[in-house]
């Protein structure tokens, strides 16, 4: 019961001592967008971190870039396109769906499906 009501009842006290958010958004929706976008983009400097988490200066610049674009009303797709135009699909942790990545997206499910089908076939054939 201790955990009750902690969350989503966040009240930001606006006392004079309150620290300011580094990326201050006017709506929680924009804030979620920012969190989502930065976490799904790969940092190109230390290549196994996302932009949200990386301490590399470039990641900071890109966070700032994304922040500004959200503030100026760009859509997620526009922001992603902006980055892909400059850095290529490598920057996307969610690979785009295209001719080259069909195998990536479908093969696992095809394997699961054929595995289960074979299993059923195997058990039933010699009954």
């Amino acid at each position: 019961m201790r955990i009750i009501l902690f969350l989503f009842t966040m009240v930001f006290f606006l006392s004079c001592y309150a620290a300011e958010d580094i990326y201050h958004f006017s709506s929680t929706e924009d804030q979620t967008r920012f969190a989502m976008l930065t976490s799904e983009l790969r940092c190109l400097v230390c290549q196994n971190q996302n932009i949200a988490e990386s301490n590399a200066p470039l990641a900071g610049d890109l966070r700032q870039q994304i922040f500004q674009q959200i503030q100026t009303g760009h859509s997620n797709q526009e922001i992603v396109d902006f980055l892909v135009d400059r850095y290529g699909n490598f920057i996307l942790y969610r690979p785009p769906f295209n001719a080259g990545t069909i195998g990536l997206w479908f093969l696992p499910f095809i394997l699961l499906f054929s595995g289960i089908s074979y299993l059923v076939y195997y058990i039933r054939k010699k009954r």
């Binding site: 190109l44 400097v45 200066p57 400059r86």
Partner: peptide, 13 residues
């Protein structure tokens, strides 16, 4: 100095 132009060039290191 801001690094913004470098982003346009796709510079990462």
């Amino acid at each position: 100095q801001t690094g913004n132009s470098a982003i346009d060039w796709g510079v990462y290191g």
